[in-house]
Design a protein around this nucleic acid. Structure first.
Length: 974
DNA sequence: GGGAATGAAAC
DNA sequence: GTTTCATTCCC
C-alpha cells in the first residue's frame, strides 16, 4: 500500500519540482562550501588536494555517501528522482537504536496512511508533499522498510579501519589516478594502507573502534549478519536477507524483522507514538527542528548529554560516542566502560539511549493519559500549559506577529513556500482551534496519523533537550519550546512534522483554499502562504485555545511531560528566555541542520531558494559567525524583533493566551528561525565541511545520491543517527588524510596498478588474492595467479614490515638464492628487499606482524602466504610470466613500499638488506611460516632446481613452471 | 550486481 | 576456518 503511495507521491513531487530539487540545490550550495573548506584543508597537505573540481565532486559524493546512517541506500527511488543517476544502493540499516521504533512508527504510519489515504482522496497531493517535505529519503526508506518489513535491521555495520581509510583517501587516489576504477583505487588504497605507519593506522583503527563502540552502544542487540544465513545471497535482494540476518538478537523480538525493536524502546516507542503526535502538530515539528538544531549543536559540542551529563565521563567521551549513547536507549548492556572513554560517538549514542528511555517514560505517561482520554489530557495539558503558557503565550503572540512579518518577507521563494506551508499548518492549527469542532476532528485525525511520528521524535528530543542543557531549557523557557527542541529526533521529526503539516495543510487546503495539489503550487504562490500565515497569526492573537486543547491535548501532554522539566525553566522570565531560546534555537537549528540536514525543508529552502532577502543575509552572516556560538546577525535580528514583539505582546496583552497561540507564535518563530537556521546551516555546513567535511550532511541535500543514509532512516533514528553521523563525520574528517605524496615517499608501489585492469596479468595477480576468498574461484584464481603472478611481494604475515622480512626470510630459507632475486632484483626484486630491509629497521610493521592474527587477518595471512608462496614460485618461475612489464610494476610497488629508505639506496643495498634480513629476520614471524615454508621449501626446491638454471639469469628465475606453482598452492592451502 | 581491498563478526 | 558485510563506484 504505502510503497505505491509513496511512489506516487514521489512522482508527484518530482512533477511539482519539489523538494528534491530544492534539496539538491541546497546541498550543492552547502557541499560546495564544505568542499571548498575541505579543499583548503587538503591544501595543507597537499599535493593533489582539490585540484580538480571533478575530484571535489567525487569527494562530495563520497562524503555524502559517507553518512553512516545509511539512509541513502533506501533511496533507490530517490536516486532515480534525484538524478544522482547512480544505481540505487541497497538499503542500509541505520544503526541508531531508535530506528527500531520505526517499525512501530511504520505500523502507525500505515494507519496514518490509511487515514491519509482518506485525506488523500480529498487531497492527493498532500501525501506527496509530505513525503517530499519530509526527508525524501526518510519516507522512501519508510516505504522500503515497510516493504522490507524491518527497516531497523538495515543498520549498517560500522566501518573498519581500512574502510575508513579508504573512504578518507579514495578520493585522493582517484584524483591521482583518474582513470582508475574503484577496484584499482581500492588496490592502491590497500597498498597505502599497508604502507601506512602503524601510528597513522592506529588513528583509523581507533576511530573504527570508537565508531563501532558507539554503534554497538546505540544498537546493543546489533549482530553482524550471520554467515550461515546465506539467504542473503539468495536471489532475493541482499537487503532482505541482510535484514533478516541483521536482526538484533539483543532485545525481545529477534524473530521479527525488526530486530531493533527488540530493543526496549519498542514498547515505549509505541506509547510515544500514541500520545505525542497530536500534541506535536506542525508547530511541534518546527519547534523540534529548531530544538533539534540547538540540541545537536550542544550535543555536538559535547555538552549534549543532558541525561548523560550525569556521568562526566560521557562528556569526556567523544561526541560520536555520546551521540551514540543518546541515540541508543539507556539499555546498553554492551556499552563497556571503554565506551565511556570512547569518543563522542559513543557518548552520543548513550545520550540517545538515555533519551530513548526518557522518551519512553514520557510516552508511557502520555499514552496513559491518552488512554484515559485525550480530553483529560487536553485539560491537564491545558492547565499546565496555561500555567506555563501564560507567560509564554504572550511572548508567542508577539512572536507570531514577528513570524508573520518575517514569513512574509521570506515567503517569496519556493523554500519560503515550504516554510509557509509549515506556517500554514500552524495556521491551520490555529484555525482549528478557532473552530473547535473542525479542529477537534482534524486534530484527532492528525493525532492518530501523526502520533507515531511526532511522539517518537518529540518525546525523545524533548527529553534530551531538557535533560541536556538547562541553559537550553532556559532559552526554551516555554515547555513547548523544550518539547520541541529535541535534537536527535529532530531529523526524523521534521519529516513527520512535514507530513503532518502537509496533511494539515491538505486538510486546510481542501477545506479552505487549495487542494493538496495546490499545496505544491501554493508553495509557488507565496501570497496564499503569507495570507495563511497572517491568518494564523491573527488566530494566535485571538488565542482560540479551547480548540487547541481538544485537538492538541495529547501533544500537550507530551509536551507537558517535557514541559514538566521545562517548567522549572519556564519559571524563568518568559520573555528573555524566549528570546534567548529563539536565538539558541536558531543557532542550534542552524547547527543541527547543517550537521544533520534533518530539516531538509528548511535547509533546502534556504539553500535552494533565495528566500527573502533576510534569509540570505542570515545565511551570509552565518558563515561569518560561528553560528552556534553567536546568533547570526540576520537571525538574531529576526529573532530579536520577534522577541521584542513577543515581549510587547505579552506586555500589552497581559492576559494569558492559549497555549496554542503561544505555540503558534513559537511555531512561527521557529519557522522563521528555521528558515534562517537553514540558511545558516548551509553556511555552517560549509564551515563544517571545511573543518571536517561532514559531507554526509550535505548529502541529505543531495538527496538523490546514495550517500544520505541518514535521511531515510526512521525519524528518531534519523535524528539520533544524524547526530551520530555528524559526530562520525567530524571524527572522520578529523582523521588524517595523507597526500599521495606521502605514500609515494613511502614508495607505495601500488598506484600504478591501475594497470591491473588493463592487462590480465597485472590484475590477476592482485585481484586473484581476493578471489581466494571463494574457494570456488580460489583454485582457478590461483592458477591464474601462477600464470600471471607478479603480485607485489606478499608478506607471509600480516605486518607489512614483517611480511617483507618474513618473505625475505622465507625466501631465504627456501632459496638461499637471494642472489637470484638480487640479481634480477637489482632492479625489481631489490626493491622488495629494500622494502623489507627498511621495514625491518623500521620495525613498525614487524610489530604489527607480531600482533596476533585475527579473523580476516588469518585469512589474509593465508592469502599472503599463498601468494607468497606463489610469489616465490613466481619469483623464480614466473618472472618470465611476469615479464618485464609486470616486474616493473612490482618494482614500482616495491619502491614505494620501501618508502622510508631511499629506493635507490635500497636498491643499491638490496643485497645487503637481504642479508640483514636473513640475519635479522624476525624469527617469530618466520617461525609461523616455517611450517608453510617447510612445505613451500619442498616445492621450492623443485623450483629451485628448475630455476637454478634460470635463477642466475633473471630476477624471477624465469621458470614459471605452473606445475610447481600448483604444488605450492596446495601446500599453502594445507 | 560483481568486483577490489581489509577488517570484524558470526557461524 | 569460512563467509558476510561494511566502504566506493565503474563496468
Amino acid at each position: 500500500m504505502r510503497p505505491t503511495v509513496c511512489r506516487s507521491e514521489r512522482a508527484e513531487e518530482r512533477q511539482c519540482g519539489s523538494t528534491e530539487q530544492v534539496w539538491l540545490t541546497a546541498e550543492n550550495s552547502l557541499t560546495g562550501e564544505q568542499w571548498q573548506e575541505k579543499a583548503l584543508e587538503r591544501k595543507g597537505y597537499g599535493t593533489r588536494a582539490l585540484e580538480d573540481e571533478k575530484n571535489l565532486d567525487r569527494e562530495r559524493e563520497n562524503f555524502r555517501v559517507t553518512v553512516m546512517k545509511g539512509s541513502n541506500r533506501n533511496k533507490d527511488h530517490s536516486a532515480e528522482g534525484e538524478g544522482a543517476g547512480k544505481r540505487p544502493k541497497r538499503k542500509c540499516l541505520q544503526w541508531h537504536p531508535l530506528l527500531a521504533k520505526k517499525l512501530l512508527d511504520f505500523s502507525e504510519e500505515e494507519e496514518e496512511e490509511d487515514e491519509e489515504e482518506d485525506l488523500d482522496k480529498a487531497i492527493p497531493l498532500f501525501t506527496i508533499e509530505v513525503q517530499l517535505l519530509g526527508a525524501d529519503g526518510l519516507e522512501q526508506d519508510v516505504a522500503e522498510t515497510e516493504d522490507d518489513e524491518s527497516p531497523e535491521q538495515r543498520a549498517r555495520r560500522p566501518m573498519n579501519a581500512f574502510l575508513l581509510f579508504c573512504k578518507r583517501h579514495r578520493s585522493l587516489v582517484r584524483q591521482k589516478h583518474p582513470r582508475l576504477d574503484n577496484r584499482g583505487a581500492t588496490k592502491i588504497l590497500a597498498d597505502w594502507w599497508a604502507v601506512l605507519d602503524p601510528k597513522e593506522k592506529q588513528k583509523y583503527t581507533d576511530m573504527a573502534k570508537e565508531y563501532k563502540d558507539a554503534f554497538m552502544k546505540a544498537n546493543p542487540g546489533y549482530k553482524w549478519c550471520p554467515t550461515t544465513n546465506k539467504p542473503v545471497k539468495s536471489p532475493t535482494p541482499t537487503v532482505n536477507s541482510r535484514k533478516k540476518l541483521w536482526a538484533f538478537p539483543s532485545d525481545s523480538s529477534r524473530d521479527l524483522p525488526s530486530p531493533k525493536k527488540a530493543k526496549t524502546e519498542e514498547m515505549p516507542q509505541l506509547n510515544f507514538g500514541m500520545a505525542d503526535p497530536t500534541q506535536m502538530g506542525g508547530l511541534s515539528m518546527l519547534l523540534l527542528a529548531g530544538e533539534h538544531a540547538l540540541g545537536t549543536s550542544e550535543m555536538s559540542s559535547g555538552s549534549c548529554r543532558p541525561d548523560v551529563s550525569e556521568s562526566p565521563e560521557l562528556r569526556q567521551k567523544s561526541p560520536l560516542f555520546q551521540f551514540a549513547e543518546i541515540s541508543s536507549s539507556t539499555s546498553h548492556p554492551d556499552a563497556p566502560s571503554k565506551q565511556c572513554q570512547a569518543s563522542a560517538l559513543f557518548q552520543f549514542a548513550e545520550c540517545l539511549a538515555s533519551e530513548g528511555v526518557k522518551i519512553e517514560e514520557s510516552k508511557l505517561i502520555k499514552t496513559k493519559e491518552s488512554d484515559g482520554g485525550r480530553i483529560k489530557e487536553l485539560e491537564k495539558g491545558k492547565e499546565e500549559r496555561e500555567i506555563k503558557m501564560e507567560k509564554t503565550d504572550e511572548a508567542r503572540l508577539q512572536k507570531a506577529a514577528e513570524f508573520e512579518k518575517s514569513f512574509k518577507e521570506n515567503v517569496k521563494d519556493s523554500k519560503e513556500l515550504r516554510n509557509f506551508e509549515e506556517l500554514q499548518m500552524d495556521d491551520i492549527m490555529a484555525i482549528k482551534m478557532e473552530d473547535p469542532k473542525e479542529i477537534k476532528k482534524e486534530e484527532l485525525d492528525k493525532d492518530q496519523k501523526y502520533s507515531h511520528f511526532s511522539d517518537f521524535s518529540y518525546s525523545a528530543s524533548s527529553k534530551i533537550i531538557i535533560s541536556d542543557v538547562p541553559s537550553r531549557k532556559d532559552h526554551m523557557c516555554h515547555p513547548h519550546g523544550i518539547m520541541i527542541i529535541e535534537d536527535p529526533t529532530a531529523l526524523n521529526k521534521p519529516e513527520k512534522l512535514k507530513k503532518k503539516k502537509k496533511k494539515s495543510k491538505m486538510d486546510r487546503h481542501g477545506n479552505d483554499k487549495s487542494t493538496p495539489k495546490k499545496t505544491c503550487k501554493k508553495r509557488q504562490s507565496s501570497e496564499s502562504d503569507i495570507e495563511s500565515v497572517i491568518y494564523t497569526i491573527e488566530a494566535v492573537a485571538k488565542g482560540d485555545w479551547g480548540i487547541e486543547k481538544l485537538g492538541e491535548t495529547p501533544r500537550k501532554k507530551a509536551r507537558t511531560s517535557s514541559s514538566g522539566k521545562g517548567n522549572v525553566l519556564d519559571a524563568k522570565p518568559p520573555k528573555k528566555k524566549v528570546k534567548s531560546r529563539e536565538k539558541k534555537m536558531s543557532k542550534e537549528k542552524s547547527s543541527d541542520i547543517t550537521k544533520e540536514s534533518r530539516p531538509p525543508d528548511f535547509i533546502s529552502i534556504s539553500a535552494s531558494k533565495n528566500i527573502s532577502g533576510e534569509v540570505p543575509e542570515g545565511i551570509k552572516a552565518e558563515p561569518l559567525t560561528p553560528t552556534e556560538d553567536v546568533l547570526p546577525p540576520s537571525l538574531s535580528g529576526q529573532a530579536k524583533p520577534e522577541d521584542s514583539e513577543c515581549h510587547r505582546k505579552i506586555e500589552t496583552c497581559g492576559s494569558r493566551k492559549s497555549e496554542r497561540s503561544c505555540k503558534g507564535a513559537l511555531y512561527k518563530t521557529l519557522v522563521s528561525e528555521g528558515m534562517l537556521t537553514s540558511l545558516r546551516a548551509n553556511v555552517d555546513r560549509g564551515k563544517r565541511s571545511s573543518g571536517k567535511g561532514n559531507s554526509s550532511f550535505s548529502p541529505s541535500g543531495t538527496s538523490g545520491s546514495k550517500k544520505f543514509k541518514k535521511t531515510k532512516p526512521k525519524e528518531d533514528s534519523l535524528l539520533g543517527s544524524a547526530k551520530l553521523d555528524e559526530e562520525f563525520e567530524k571524527k572522520f574528517n578529523s582523521l588524517p588524510q595523507y597526500s599521495p605524496v606521502t605514500f609515494d615517499r613511502k614508495c607505495v608501489p601500488v598506484p600504478r596498478k591501475k594497470k591491473k585492469t588493463g592487462s590480465m596479468s597485472s590484475e590477476p595477480t592482485k585481484t586473484s588474492k581476493g578471489s581466494f576468498q571463494s574457494q570456488k574461484n580460489l583454485f582457478h584464481k590461483i592458477v591464474s595467479k601462477y600464470k600471471h603472478k607478479k603480485e607485489k611481494p606478499n608478506v607471509p604475515e600480516k605486518g607489512s614490515g614483517d611480511k617483507w622480512s618474513n618473505k625475505q626470510f622465507f625466501l631465504d630459507a627456501i632459496h638461499p638464492t637471494e642472489a637470484i632475486f638480487t640479481e634480477d632484483k637489482n632492479t625489481t626484486e631489490p626493491a622488495y628487499k629494500v622494502k623489507n630491509a627498511p621495514s625491518i629497521p623500521n620495525t613498525p610493521e614487524p610489530t604489527a606482524t607480531q600482533e596476533p592474527l585475527v579473523g580476516s587477518q588469518k585469512r589474509k595471512a593465508r592469502k599472503t602466504k599463498i601468494t607468497h608462496l606463489v610469489r616465490t614460485a613466481d619469483g623464480r618461475v614466473s618472472p618470465a610470466g611476469g615479464t618485464l612489464d609486470d616486474k616493473p610494476k612490482e618494482l614500482q610497488r616495491s619502491l614505494p613500499k620501501v618508502t622510508e629508505t631511499g629506493c635507490h639506496d635500497a636498491c643499491a643495498h638490496s643485497s645487503e638488506a637481504a642479508e640483514t634480513r636473513s640475519s635479522t629476520p624476525e624469527m617469530p614471524a618466520v617461525s609461523a611460516f616455517f611450517s608453510l615454508a617447510a612445505l613451500a621449501e619442498v616445492a621450492a626446491m623443485e623450483n629451485v632446481h628448475r630455476g637454478q638454471r634460470s635463477t642466475p639469469l633473471t630476477h624471477d628465475g624465469q621458470p614459471k613452471e605452473m606445475p610447481q606453482a600448483p604444488v605450492l598452492i596446495s601446500c599453502a592451502d594445507q
